[in-house]
Computed example of a mutant assay.
Amino acid sequence: MSHIQLINSLLQNELSAVAAYQQALNKFRKQTALGEMDFLMSSFEDHKAAVFSLQGKIKRLGGTAVQDSGAWGTWAKITMAGANLLGKQTALKALREGELTGFEEYEKALQDHELPAEARSLIETKLLPAQQRHMRTLDSLLDAVMA
């Protein structure tokens, strides 16, 4: 897999995350505590920023950034739609699964020794820490919902 394909794959995950958080925000806007809403909005903004950063990296490497989230995004939309019907706890679990998948993809990308240094730096300093932060917060929200 070329660097551009690899980064495009990461970009597709981020596009999926944006779509999933958008659905969660739309669904829970009326029935969510302020702290939860702040978290969902903050994570949504983080993922949008990641999309922008990855698109920039792809362009600087001379590639063309993907425009949609592909099969993974379709799966995320279906999962979130079902989760939203089943309630907040299920939706939060679906978001947590998505964050874990993104985390694992970033970890895998870092194992590619040919990954350009600026892409590696972006993943290590911004994208991976954001995934970890999102997972911790989702764990806290899930604990609160299940209590």
Rank of each mutant, 00 (worst) to 15 (best):
A109F: 08
S69P: 02
T125F: 11
Y106H: 07
L61N: 01
A50L: 07
G98W: 11
W75A: 11
M146Q: 12
R120I: 04
T74C: 10
R136I: 09
V18H: 00
Y21T: 03
L141G: 00
G70A: 13
P116R: 10
S9F: 08
V145Y: 11
V66P: 01
Q131N: 08
A81T: 12
R133Q: 12
E14S: 09
L100D: 11
V66Q: 07
L6D: 05
A81L: 13
K59W: 02
H3T: 15
E118W: 13
V51T: 05
M146R: 11
M37D: 07
P116T: 08
E14N: 09
A20R: 03
R136D: 14
A71R: 13
T32R: 11
M80S: 02
Q12R: 15
K59Y: 06
S53G: 03
F28R: 05
A94G: 04
I7P: 00
L100K: 12
A81E: 13
E45P: 00
E99M: 07
P116D: 06
A130Q: 12
A33I: 09
M135C: 01
E114S: 13
H3K: 14
T74M: 13
N8K: 03
R29W: 15
T90Y: 14
Q31M: 12
T74W: 12
K77Q: 13
F39V: 07
T125W: 07
L54N: 00
Q55M: 11
I123V: 06
K30E: 15
A20Y: 03
Q31Y: 13
K48R: 10
E118T: 10
A50R: 02
K48N: 06
G87V: 13
W75T: 09
G63C: 06
M80G: 04
Q5N: 12
L85F: 14
H47Y: 04
Q67P: 00
A94E: 00
I4T: 04
L138H: 05
R120V: 02
L10I: 03
M37P: 02
G73A: 10
A117V: 15
R96Q: 13
R96F: 09
F39P: 03
D46M: 05
A17W: 00
P116K: 07
V66T: 10
Q89L: 10
G102N: 05
A19M: 07
S53A: 09
H113L: 08
A50D: 04
A119S: 15
L95K: 05
L6W: 04
D112Q: 09
L25S: 08
Q131D: 10
F39M: 10
E97D: 15
T64C: 00
L85R: 14
E36Q: 14
Q22L: 08
A109Y: 06
A49Q: 09
D68R: 08
I7N: 01
V18R: 01
R133E: 12
K30N: 15
A50G: 04
E36P: 00
L95W: 07
G73E: 13
L138F: 07
E99V: 03
L115E: 05
G98D: 07
W75Y: 15
M80L: 13
A33M: 11
L92P: 00
N13D: 14
A49E: 08
A130C: 00
F39W: 06
